[in-house]
Structure formats: structure tokens, C-alpha cells
Nucleic acid binder design. Sequence first.
DNA 1: AAGCCGGGGCA
DNA 2: TGCCCAGGCTT
Length: 358
Amino acid sequence: MNYSVLHQRLNAWFEKNKRVLPWRNTRDWYPIFLSEILLQQTRVKQGLPYFHTFIKHFPDIQSLAAADEQQVLTLWSGLGYYNRARNLLKCAKILVHQYHGEFPLSQKEALQLPGIGPYTTAAILSLAFDQPLAVVDGNVIRVISRLFNVNSDLRLSSSRRKIDTLANQLLNTRHPALHNEAMMELGSLICKPLQPVCTQCPLTPFCEALQQDTVHKIPFKSPPAKKREIANYVIILRHDHHFLLVQRPSEGLLAGMWEFPVLQVQQLNHGISEIERLLQVHWNMQEKITDSGKMLHHIYSHIRLNYRPLLVELEGKRPVLPGYGTMRWLAAVNFHTLPMHNAHKKIFLNSNPSWFNN
DNA sequence: AAGCCGGGGCA
DNA sequence: TGCCCAGGCTT
């Protein structure tokens, strides 16, 4: 197929409408690499402040490779998918120590790097080095599936392979970087999931879904599985104006992130005296509980976490909590020095100020 | 192939 | 409330 007219219209639209972003208009692979890791499953607007933070602390791959993991996690705190941060650091070390501080120019070698999958490989090699690899992210999947009226279930990997083939056939091999950025930008600004702005789309003459009037139901994804539920009592232990923070296990949900101690239960409907008995049984504590009076919840992609914050003022000896490893007593003003996850950040940002004053 | 892994914005 | 986002790793 000859897509020269399509390429021309797409590129003209992009040059006129592209957003100004700090990792654009450069062929320096480091900011491109950093932005691609930060933006995995993350909107540009959400990742942007983190990009500035990371560039400021780590202006080059050498300074990043020399960083401490806790520091990287603390800077990453709040962005989610924390293994991305750990893999970013691992990857930087490999690039510095095994690749002389350069990014490998082969697809095969790039794919071996931690946190670098098919998308990020194609993105870095095409955007920074103009290699002819089509990027296929959420935006491109949408644009391609509508352009070619692909109505198969995109939860199936066979559908994903079909999109990948089409994207590479459509790739403008004379200007891979320009083409890939334009495709993603079109998906982000025009060919949106809901209410796409077809009236402003430069590709309407080529869009099969528009001609078949199927734009609203493409791309098609079969319904996801139901979220599993978790219920936690969040026990805020206060002693001499300090609060106990504990580190989660090194594997699983929110691995290694810091939080208030929690008691996982089936239901959050116990009476206060019953919860006090639970504390006695599990943590050998006999203090009285102050109820926040609030039930909160936090939605993850595949989990619904319900939780109920409770305050416990400790008078005497500090307790030992079985099941937890590292723990630390901190004043509330110093919470930001540890990588906490957002569900528990919300607790002290939103709860009764008297709990955390002083 | 399917499940796991966060958080925020939008309708 | 449900869906999606410049995806990747593990089993």
C-alpha cells in the first residue's frame, strides 16, 4: 500500500497541533528514555511534574545510576506502579556499567533491559535514533483499529498482533520519529476513547470505521473480571507526637512502600471494643481506640481496598508488631521523607487535623 | 494467555 | 461508577 497522502496529512496536522513537551525536539536519548518509563500507563499531564523532578535530581544517566533506591522510590512516590522505579534504576546501572552510558541500538539488546518492553524499545529507538519501528501504545491501538475497522476483541493477543502488523505497514519509514509521535498525538488529542473529534481529524478520508459508522464501538474490549476486595483497619499509632510507619513486604501489592500498620479483616463492621480485642490478640496491645468515624476506599486497577482509620494513643512502651519488618517513628512533617503510597497519604491529608498536629 | 501492578482524570 | 492512560513482568 502507498500511504504517502496519509503520511503527508498526518505530519502536517502534527506540526501544527503538537503539544510542547520537554522531551520533544531533542535527539538526546536520555530525556526520551526517562519520559517513556515515566509515561507507561500514565497520562502526560500526570507524569510531567515527575519528569521535571527526575531531570533535576538526575540530569544524566550516570547520576541516575549512582542513585539510592529509596531516594528514587521517594521521588516516584504517588505515581504508582513502583516496580517501574526499581527497574529504572536497575536499567540505568546496566546502561552505565555494561553499555558505557549509551543506549543499545539493537531491538534485541534493548528488550533485555529491565522495564523496557516492546513499546518502550520501539519508542526510544525510533524517537531518539529514527529507527523504522512502529510504536504501539494505547493511543496507536485506537487509531489503527479505527482506521482499519478492526472489531476483534483487543483483550486477545491475536488482535494485538494484528494491530502491530498494521501499524508497521502504515509506518512512514522515511520519518519514523515524526510518524510515531504524530500517531500518538492524534490518538491523544483527536481519536479519543470517548467522543473522538472526527470533524478535526486529518485522516477521515482513510478511516474505515468512520465510513462504516462504527467509530463509537471500536476498539472493542470484552468486559474485565470483577475486582477483588480487601478490607483493612488502619491503626495510627501515636506516641509523643510521633507516628509509626511500617514498610510493606518486598513483593506483591505496593511492594516495599511505607504505610500505617493495618489489620486485614473480612468486614469493617466490628464495634470499637471488638477491634480493641483484635489489637490485644494480634499485637498484644491494650490501649483505647479513637474512631475516625469515616470509611474510605481506594480503587486500584484490579482491587478495591476498603479501609477505616483508627487512632491509638500509646502511653508507655512502644509495641512490636509481628509480621512487619522495618518500622520507623516519624513526626507528621517528616512523612514525605519516606516512599508512602497514596491510599495512606490520603489519610493524613484528609483526616481530622487534630490527629496529626504537633 | 492471564493475572498482577497505581493513581488520576473524565463523562 | 467505569474506563483508560506514551506497558511490563510473572506464572
